[in-house]
């Protein structure tokens, strides 16, 4: 036997039609003999009916256009970032490979004695900085080309 309080607690879900068939039946039986719950149930149903017909907010002007423009801009920025990342990854890989090549080649050419280690180290350093310089120049060229194409497009 369910109490009045438990029936009352079930009223919102009953009004929303979200109770099981058995629970709904129990609530309906209770409503037949309880004017308070009947009144509350009717008010809940009324609120639900009106909730379904709340006025829609007005769509802002140019919402579609603004959203499309934002999405296109975002896609263009992502593409640009991807390009830069590929370039940087390539430059780093090239730097490491050339360093390794210089190290191996200089070892073969100069021998593995202590004095030649310093020479080999210096050659590697020069090569690293040169690679970083080339990467920076490449990136700035790419940015310049992109800026030029953006100016032409607009």
């Amino acid at each position: 036997m369910r109490t009045h309080q438990s029936m009352q607690a079930s009223l919102p879900l009953a009004a929303a039609g979200e109770l099981s068939r058995e629970e709904q039946f129990l609530v309906e039986e209770h409503l037949k003999g309880c004017p308070d719950c009947t009144c509350e149930f009717a008010r809940l149903q009324q609120v639900i009916t009106e909730l379904r017909f709340l006025p829609d907010p007005r769509l802002p002007d140019y919402l579609l256009e603004r959203t499309l423009m934002g999405a296109e801009q975002h896609a263009a920025n992502s593409k640009e970032r991807r390009g830069e990342n590929i370039l940087l990854t390539g430059a780093v890989a090239m730097g490491w490979l050339s360093n390794l090549a210089v190290w191996l080649f200089s070892g073969y050419a100069l021998g593995n004695d202590y004095a030649s280690w310093w020479l080999r180290l210096a050659a590697s350093m020069v090569l690293s900085w040169s690679t970083a310089g080339v990467a920076a120049v490449l990136l700035s060229c790419q940015r310049r080309i992109e800026r030029r194409s953006y100016v032409l497009a607009s």
């Binding site: 919102p12 009004a15 929303a16 979200e18 008010r43 609120v47």
Partner: peptide
Amino acid sequence: VKSRLSRGLERLRKQFE
């Protein structure tokens, strides 16, 4: 979700009234 629906409806009814 059921609990939020139930409480939400009940609070909405009270505030509306």
